[in-house]
Design a protein around this nucleic acid. Structure first.
Lengths: 228, 228
DNA sequence: CTGGTGTTCAGGGCTGGCCCTGATGACGGC
DNA sequence: GCCGTCATCAGGGCCAGCCCTGAACACCAG
């Protein structure tokens, strides 16, 4: 079996070198190591590697550039597997990465990669057209849309919560009692699987859940259309 | 003075017809009325109007399409003024609309347009290369970045708040006492001008303030680069 | 008819979060 | 030295929001 080729993109040079070392010793040929998305695009176009590894957050903004680049590479170079490394699970954005296919794509959470061998196995799978997702990622992908579990009324109230309205403002606006709003809030939190945890501020988490579709939509506009 | 030409885009046909009536009676020539952004782009390319009026939220997604289209038109048709109508003030997204220039652009809040004559005046100014911004919009544009008023520590704590962390989780993570975190939270809220109001849930509002740059960045990626 | 879902509301209890005041120490600028 | 800013922390108080239980009614499907 021939050596698989890889291009690595991560602005953290130390981490990038470490990955290069790991993959190199595992038999991959490192074709390039880049620190930003634009350079990665050029290198991938030049080398046409079996695998492109991206940190999700790249310069200049450290927000979305890695994911944008990864999704674009998936479209423009269908023979290049794309492996994304992330600190956090960005479920809805992840869905956009796999919207056309889950072949040749991987999404791993940096802190949950349990060993070098796991990482190498994942890289090899993705490079050869398979997929590799962190189990948390798989669970999130197979789950339905949490917001879809809300009733119409609950959705309406969550939208007001997400505007930073107090319960009192909400009950006045919707002509309900304080108790009714509280009941709905409680139901919303449970429907969204936001159970009491000492570390969580659940109202904020519910807001974040509500805002995600919007973020995804903004992001969708950043991408080329999927091939049919 | 020749009649100014205009293309209107708003998926609410009734509102669109009403605007057409108003502008028509004010001497504008209505070149086209469209319901979505793609149709608007084609019509503007065909008619090259003096003014393009957009509702900010257009189909198919009713999220950003109007603003995307408006910003693109600004780039591709520099002689066409762009007037955006919105329900809410989206400050940071607005900034992207005026990033290259504030000539030939307007942003009005639908609920704050105080009369037909005001609207017509604004349309005329924008169509002839001027600008028209709701006073609230002007105030927001001239104000600095609220997040820039935070100290490094405050910014760090706000980022944790925005992840939906409880105060207890934050104090444990940063090895501070509960009291210290509370002090920082209080300072953050005041720095962000989030004073106690019975209608507000201020912690959520602080989170929304924090998340705005990210939204803007996602949106920036959706736009063509500004001409230099 | 039964069961499930959605909507509304109540009583009662608890606490995380916020408020205010005050203090200390470090640092930098004038 | 003085002042302002930042960071840390304390004491004490209050309450919006959440929790739990329970109830009633409407509607729909089986």
């Amino acid at each position: 079996m021939r050596d698989l080729t890889v291009v690595l993109t991560d602005d953290a040079a130390l981490f990038r070198e470490a990955l290069a070392g790991v993959l190199g010793r595992a038999g991959f040929r490192i074709r390039a190591q880049l620190g930003d998305a634009a350079a990665a695009r050029a290198a991938i176009a030049e080398h046409r590697p079996d695998l492109a590894v991206f940190d999700i957050r790249l310069p200049p903004t450290h927000t979305l550039e890695g994911l944008v680049a990864a999704a674009e590479i998936r479209e423009s170079h269908p023979d290049t597997g794309v492996l994304v490394l992330s600190q956090h699970l960005e479920t809805r954005l992840l869905r956009m990465l796999v919207r056309s296919s889950s072949r040749g794509v991987g999404y791993l959470l940096k802190e949950r990669v349990t060993g070098i061998q796991d990482f190498v196995d994942a890289a090899r799978r993705v490079a050869t057209g398979g997929c590799a997702f962190d189990p948390e990622v798989v669970r999130a992908l197979t789950r339905g849309d949490p917001l879809g579990r809300l009733s119409e009324r609950e959705h309406e109230i969550l939208s007001l919560i997400a505007q930073g309205r107090s319960n009192m403002a909400i009950c006045e606006q919707l002509r309900l009692t304080k108790k009714t709003v509280e009941s709905h809030v409680r139901s919303i939190l449970l429907r969204l699987d936001l159970h009491p945890q000492p570390d969580d501020h659940r109202r904020v988490l519910a807001v974040l859940e509500y805002l995600r579709p919007w973020s995804e939509e903004a992001y969708r506009l950043a991408l080329p259309p999927p091939r049919t």
